[in-house]
């Protein structure tokens, strides 16, 4: 099974001796090349869901299939390698390295001597409107610019699956639309599977499907 398939996933956290259930027997399928938007109130487990799909976190029970591989059976180091190879992540808090420039942050996830990827890094940043900011270190960029760098970094390796957590939260409406158009165009062109968590109705409406999550 390519794309994403979550089979009866349960996830809970332990805090101060109490068990907090986040998901209970959740099943979800995202076919290859489709773009799913996840919406729901805060605390409903949207970010946890992305963490599970990306292999950042592991489920208490159930199977997580991504790109035909069962992440639930993988040890952490394998999940890390898998993420590097197949998954493009856009985080709410960007996760850029503060000592690197915009271009270097994007280059960071490129593998070895792949000149195509390196060229692509530049092109993506230019498309994101950061052509004049390529050599600015992270601290010299605004929140919106940092978000765009994070998106470029997620796209540069042409991953099989893109997971985005509030990708336009820091952008104004016009920039958000522009960026989403770039992302969606790329996702459709290359038939990438994509899951986007967003509160923004406009972003959600651009996706192929919308799923709502609620608190347990």
């Amino acid at each position: 099974m390519e794309g994403v398939l979550l089979e009866r996933i349960s996830k809970s956290y332990h805090k101060d001796g109490q068990v907090i259930d986040i998901m209970d027997q959740v099943t979800l399928q995202v076919p290859v090349g489709t773009h799913l938007a996840i919406q729901g109130p805060s605390g409903s487990g949207k970010t946890t869901l992305l963490n599970l799909i990306s292999g950042l976190d592991s489920a208490d029970s159930g199977n997580i299939w991504v790109c035909g591989q069962n992440l639930s059976l993988m040890p952490e180091y394998e999940r890390t390698a898998f993420r590097n190879k197949h998954v493009g992540l856009v985080f709410q808090d960007y996760c850029l390295l503060p000592g690197l420039t915009a271009l270097e942050n994007v280059k960071l996830v490129c593998s070895g001597d792949n000149q195509v990827e390196l060229e692509r890094a530049k092109i993506l940043l230019v498309e994101m409107g950061l052509g004049s900011r390529l050599n600015f270190v992270t601290s010299q960029l605004s929140g919106g610019e940092q978000q765009r760098v994070a998106i470029a970094r997620a796209l540069v390796k042409q991953p099989s699956i893109i997971l985005a957590d509030e990708p336009t939260a820091q952008l104004d409406r016009r920039s958000a639309e522009l960026i989403m158009d770039v992302i969606i165009q790329m996702q459709r062109q290359e038939q990438v599977t994509m899951v986007t968590v967003t509160h923004d109705e406009n972003v959600a409406n651009k996706c192929d499907h919308i799923n709502y999550m609620d608190r347990l």
Partner: peptide, 12 residues
């Protein structure tokens, strides 16, 4: 924080 970012990106 950097280590966390790298881990999330799957960078060794």
């Amino acid at each position: 924080i950097d280590e966390q970012s790298l881990k999330r990106l799957g960078v060794n």
